[in-house]
Each structure stands twice: as structure tokens, then as C-alpha cells.
């Protein structure tokens, strides 16, 4: 029993679990908007596109979050600029831009093979995280949570019915930019926890899971936040014993929960919909 408490005796483990839970919570909350907007691919693109910015920030001696955020926004601008100006479909535009950025990032990284801190941005290493980075992540997570607390309802309305937002005197275009910036910021915060490759998992899976469990946005947001928090904490905790990747265990845990919910969700699960179909057929036959 006492063996299970060992991770709580180490400072670095407490910090790792704390920051993973915080980032998990914010990413989980944001994932609801990502899922309802249909921006999973966009989130994936942004989280990969921030990699070159991290390397360049390190070279220039500025905080990695600043470089990553700038790089993500540049990619988003490139995607928005190309859309509509070429006959190429949007998914191809996103694919080209984000692999281009990611490829450039990997190339830049390969120029500095000995820099451990840079290497961790691909796969994350929350156990070895520096204090300065924890502070950066906590600030970003706090700002994202605050913005969602203030503008979340308008953002939700822009996803459900953008014209009604216009009728209420708001601007769907501004909400689109806001969601893009929140996405880039959260991807930056998740970078050190789970790495650029897996951060999209935290930005999609909790929302997708909660969507199957809730018929109201408030409940969906609460469920996704709880999933993000607990899996962040549990994933970091488990990685102590498994001696494996924290990011991998967090995202794999989220995927496992998703599969269970997908099958067993009371109303929108596979079993429930199958039962409802059978009942409807039986009723029709009777």
C-alpha cells in the first residue's frame, strides 16, 4: 500500500502530477469547443506547427511559449490565407502547411541533437520539467481558462448558430480567431506535458467522450474537464511505476475511457443505440 504513495513523496512527481492535471483540465474544457467546431484536424495541425517556433525561441533566448505561439499563429494565418485563394481543398491545405512546419521543426531540432530540453518537445517529459517552464504552462492554462470563463458562451453560440451571434451584436469571425488563439496557446501548454505529437489527443478525446455522455453543453464541459484533470494526474502518476512516457500514458488512458464510453454510454453508446433500434423495430412489429 505504502508503495502506491511513493510518487507523492517526490517533489518532481507532485509538480508533474499537478501541472499535468492543470493542463489536462484546460485542454479538456477547450476540447468541447474543438469537437463541436469540427476542428480536430486544425488542432492537430496547430500543435505540430508550433515545433519550429520552440527551437527558434531557444536559439533567440526568448521564452519557448512565445516562439511556439507565434509559430502556431503563423501556420494558422498561412492556412487561412491559402483557403479560398487556391482551388485546393481545405484538408490538403492544412496537411501541407502543418507537415511543412513540423518538418522544418524536426530539421531544426536535428541540428542540436544534444539539447535534451529541445528533444522533449516532441514527446514531452513532464517528469524532468524545469520550474520556469511550469510557471509558463500554469500562466497559459490560467489565461485560457479565464478567457473561456468570460467569452465561452459567445464562443459556444458561434459554433451552434453564428447568425444568432450576429443578431446579438457579436462577431463570429472574431470568435473564430479567438478559438484559434486558445487552441495554439493550449497546445503550447500541453507541449511539455505530453509533447507535440500527442497534445492533440488532450484537445479532442475528452470532448469527444463527453459528447457521448451529455445532452447539454454545461454538462459536456464539466465531464470533459474532469476527464482531462483525472487522466492528467493519473497518467503522470502511472508513468512513475511504468517508467514510461507520461504523455503516452495520459493519452492512452483517455482513449481507453473513450472506448468504454463509446460502447456503454447510457444514451449515445453503441449498445444503447442498438437497443433503441431493436425496441423501435419491435414496437413497429407489435
Amino acid at each position: 500500500m505504502s508503495e502506491l504513495l511513493i510518487p507523492f513523496e517526490y517533489d518532481y512527481m507532485l509538480r508533474a502530477m499537478g501541472i499535468s492535471a492543470l493542463v489536462g483540465a484546460v485542454a479538456g474544457l477547450l476540447s468541447c469547443y474543438v469537437v463541436l467546431k469540427g476542428w480536430s484536424l486544425m488542432g492537430d495541425a496547430l500543435s505540430h506547427a508550433i515545433v519550429p517556433g520552440v527551437v527558434l525561441a531557444w536559439l533567440g533566448g526568448i521564452p519557448f511559449a512565445v516562439g511556439a505561439f507565434a509559430s502556431g499563429l503563423l501556420a494558422a494565418l498561412a492556412m487561412a490565407g491559402l483557403r479560398g485563394r487556391t482551388p485546393i481543398r481545405e484538408d490538403a491545405v492544412i496537411g501541407v502547411v502543418f507537415t511543412g512546419f513540423f518538418g522544418l521543426g524536426l530539421f531544426l531540432l536535428s541540428l542540436f541533437p544534444s539539447n535534451v530540453r529541445l528533444q522533449t518537445i516532441i514527446f514531452g517529459n513532464v517528469l524532468g520539467i524545469a520550474d520556469a517552464d511550469i510557471i509558463q504552462m500554469a500562466i497559459i492554462a490560467g489565461v485560457v481558462a479565464l478567457v473561456l470563463a468570460i467569452r465561452g458562451r459567445d464562443l459556444m453560440l458561434s459554433l451552434f448558430d453564428p447568425v444568432q451571434l450576429v443578431a446579438a451584436g457579436g462577431s463570429p469571425g472574431r470568435m473564430r480567431v479567438l478559438l484559434l488563439m486558445l487552441l495554439a496557446a493550449t497546445a503550447v501548454a500541453g507541449l511539455q506535458a505530453v509533447g507535440a505529437v500527442l497534445v492533440i489527443g488532450m484537445l479532442v478525446t475528452p470532448g469527444a467522450t463527453a459528447y457521448l455522455l451529455a445532452d447539454r453543453f454545461g454538462r459536456m464541459a464539466a465531464i470533459a474537464t474532469v476527464i482531462g484533470t483525472t487522466t492528467g494526474l493519473a497518467g503522470a502518476y502511472a508513468s512513475y511505476f511504468l517508467d514510461g512516457s507520461t504523455g503516452g500514458s495520459i493519452v492512452a488512458l483517455q482513449a481507453a475511457i473513450f472506448v468504454v464510453v463509446l460502447v456503454f454510454a447510457p444514451k449515445h453508446g453503441i449498445r444503447a443505440t442498438r437497443r433503441a433500434t431493436a425496441a423501435a423495430v419491435a414496437e413497429g412489429a407489435a
Binding site: 451552434f160 444568432q164 451571434l165 445532452d215 447539454r216
Partner: peptide
């Protein structure tokens, strides 16, 4: 994921 009342409340935003 919105209910009837939520939608009507959007008219008040």
C-alpha cells in the same frame, strides 16, 4: 448539446 430553454435564452444574449 443544447436544450430548448438554452436555445430560447440565446435570444437574450
Amino acid at each position: 448539446p443544447v436544450g430548448v430553454r438554452d436555445v430560447v435564452m440565446m435570444g437574450r444574449y
